[in-house]
Design a binder for these strands. Structure first.
Lengths: 177, 177
DNA sequence: CATACCATGTAAGTAGTTACATGATTAT
DNA sequence: ATAATCATGTAACTACTTACATGGTATG
């Protein structure tokens, strides 16, 4: 995945919602959008610096407590238009999803391979755990209609993640026999 | 995706089925397993060279026509055991699927956003085309039960890809309203 | 005879991970 | 006081893409 620099748009989009620090952004990747994009702090901090040199964002320094410095980034007007350009442009390519389990399945030669049941059982556990976690998050973050309306995009993405796990589990159940 | 070198296992697994040239391998990525892993020839050829220095594969030179040289790679016994180690080891981590469309959705603020219908329509077209293509491939490659039995892993992976597109389309249909 | 495909390679660059490094604050 | 978390950064490396480069073969 070395080509489009989608990270920059995500950072701009997140800063377009509200000013944030690098650490705040890092946490968004760990939580809400982590299901569909990952970024470590070691990638986020340099990218924020680069975006600032491009005048797409600016920062001010805040002090937490007595001496802990943090940089709060804000999107600039040109940052907003650069973000909107991406946001409302066609999304033609379906980005690759890589699935190591499916690849291992590819090398199975027979329906009766003795390893198949254990492999399916393992994935079922894994995806069940993930689904449970996502459902718990949904219940926590969206307890009522007002919270959904206030964070509609986040809701959509979480719903999609839940849907994806449910379908994956359904496939595991039917494929394994 | 910079960490596990899954490509090496895929190359070994494919050579474990039968000896192949780099170009043969390149085509497998374009066709059968391209739905779940991608690799360009510029990544495949150097990796084959590396695997040979590790004594996991060897090659002989063949001549096509009168002078076109090609290298046919064969897996070695240590290559087979290295492959099997991966193949039958637990697959604990669910690898990230990156979806640019879902990320764009994340930044939608309201259910009534005027851009939503066009965005969903575009994705519906995209995934419908992909599904059509996959179904055509299935009909072509697996015309009868014998072809399924002979390439069971390939069948499983293609079925999963079809299933995934169907579920994605189902979600697009219900989420868009 | 030209186009598409077969066949192999390298170079340069971008994206992303892991590890190294440091220090402050909050909760237990 | 100690562990978890807040907060920011860089260095080294691996994975992957795009572009450059070359030449043979088969089909119409």
């Amino acid at each position: 995945m070395a080509q489009k620099n989608i990270l920059q748009y995500l950072l701009l989009g997140l800063l377009n919602q509200a000013p944030k620090t690098g650490y705040d952004l890092k946490r968004v990747f760990e939580n809400e959008i982590g299901e569909f994009w990952q970024a470590k702090h070691s990638q986020i901090y340099p990218e924020l610096k680069r975006l600032e040199t491009e005048d797409l964002i600016t920062h001010i320094e805040l002090i937490s407590g007595t001496k802990l410095k943090k940089k709060q980034y804000t999107i600039t007007p040109s940052g907003v238009s650069y973000f909107n350009e991406w946001r409302y442009s066609p999304t033609s390519e379906i980005l690759a999803s890589k699935d190591e389990f499916i690849l291992k399945l590819y090398f199975i030669e027979s329906k009766n391979d003795q390893h198949l049941p254990a492999m399916f059982a393992e994935q079922t556990t894994l995806h069940t755990d993930k689904l449970t976690h996502l459902l718990a998050r949904k219940a926590l973050v969206f307890p009522n209609q007002a919270t959904i309306t206030a964070n509609y995009g986040h809701y959509l993405i979480l719903e999609h993640a839940i849907n994806r796990e449910q379908d994956y589990l359904k496939w595991l159940a039917t494929a394994d026999c």
